[in-house]
Structure formats: structure tokens, C-alpha cells
């Protein structure tokens, strides 16, 4: 309760004024390295709130979830939950059809493996992501973006790297 109160106070203070956008981003996730050998490609979805420090530079917070199935019609599933801080920079923020940008994020990833009715101990590890975006207008205040990310879960002994093809839509909000 104490921690939740602090979080609510901080978020409330942040939302007093300015411009924000809210982004929903979905992605197809392909594991890189042996950790995905028995898992299928994954699907992820994330929701982010970005603060506009300038029209070009934004930073925000969000949470992303990803799920992977069994690669061999078995019962395994692997899930990730990633609260993250995100920074993005776009070159032509008003561009109707071409607004290239880069995004980078850092946060924590909760990973959970379930298989055959069992569940392994969850692991919390630092996670980073970096990628490029092609952003375009869907008619104010809506925009969309396509891109790809490289992502790495910095777990002990072996990192969980992945490649992501992303599609997102965003809505700008004046506070």
C-alpha cells in the first residue's frame, strides 16, 4: 500500500501539464539463441505513455507482455512481463507519411516458464531494447508506426535475446 501510494503520487504529479501520447504496440517476437529452441515465435503487446520533452524527443513508461507457445504441439508456454522506461527520438514529428525515429528502452523483465503442468520459479532480470520506427499519420491525433527492435533480457549465465517486428498506433493528448 505504501509503495502504491508513492507510485500514484509521482504519476499524478507528472500528469499535471504538457503533451503526451499513448502508444499501443504489438509485435511478433523471434527468439535469438538456443533459449527458444522448444518454443514457438511469440506475440507481444505493450502500452506506453510518453511525455513530450520536445516534438522530437519523448520519454515515457510502459508495460509489455509477451507469450510464447510450444514449438512441438506440447504444453509448454513462456511468458514475459516487462515494465520499461522508453526514450524515443523522431526526425520529422509532423511528417504525414515519413517520420523516421529510433527507440530505446530499459526496464525489468519477469519471465515465467510453464510446462507439463509444472511452473518454474519466475525470474526478474534487466531488459533492454533498441529499434527503429517508421512513423506516419492516421489523421490527427492518431499516428501509427512500423519497425523492428532488438531486445535482450540480461539473465544470469545466458541472455534472452529476441528480434521483434512491431506495429503500433498512438494518440496524442494535450494535458
Amino acid at each position: 500500500m505504501y509503495k502504491a501510494t508513492i507510485l500514484m503520487l509521482i504519476v499524478s504529479a507528472t500528469l499535471m501539464a504538457g503533451t503526451m501520447n499513448f502508444v499501443f504496440e504489438g509485435a511478433g517476437v523471434t527468439p535469438i539463441g538456443g533459449w527458444g529452441e522448444n518454443l514457438s515465435s511469440g506475440l507481444s503487446g505493450g502500452l506506453y505513455g510518453n511525455w513530450f520533452f520536445s516534438r522530437k524527443l519523448r520519454a515515457g513508461l510502459g508495460v509489455e507482455g509477451a507469450v510464447f507457445g510450444d514449438a512441438n504441439q506440447g504444453s509448454a508456454s513462456f511468458t514475459q512481463l516487462k515494465p520499461m522506461g522508453i526514450v524515443s527520438f523522431f526526425l520529422r514529428p509532423h511528417g504525414a507519411t515519413f517520420n523516421p525515429g529510433i527507440v530505446a528502452g530499459f526496464g525489468y523483465c519477469m519471465s515465467r516458464l510453464a510446462s507439463g503442468g509444472g511452473v518454474d520459479t519466475e525470474s526478474w532480470d534487466p531488459v533492454w531494447r533498441a529499434g527503429i520506427r517508421w512513423n506516419f499519420s492516421l489523421g490527427s491525433p492518431w499516428r501509427a508506426g512500423l519497425g523492428f527492435d532488438l531486445e535482450g533480457v540480461m539473465a544470469s549465465e545466458k541472455s534472452g535475446d529476441a528480434f521483434k517486428l512491431t506495429f503500433g498506433i498512438s494518440r496524442e493528448v494535450q494535458l
Partner: peptide
């Protein structure tokens, strides 16, 4: 603040190592 809230609850283990082994 978020990291301070989240981190104490976190426990890391070599899950990705086990998956790739």
C-alpha cells in the same frame, strides 16, 4: 521510484540458461 519499488521484489535465476541447455 519505479525501480525502487520493483527491484526489491525481483529474483533472478538462470531461466534462459536452462531453456537453452
Amino acid at each position: 521510484a519505479l525501480l525502487l519499488i520493483i527491484l526489491p521484489a525481483c529474483e533472478s535465476n538462470p531461466l534462459y540458461f536452462r531453456l537453452s541447455s
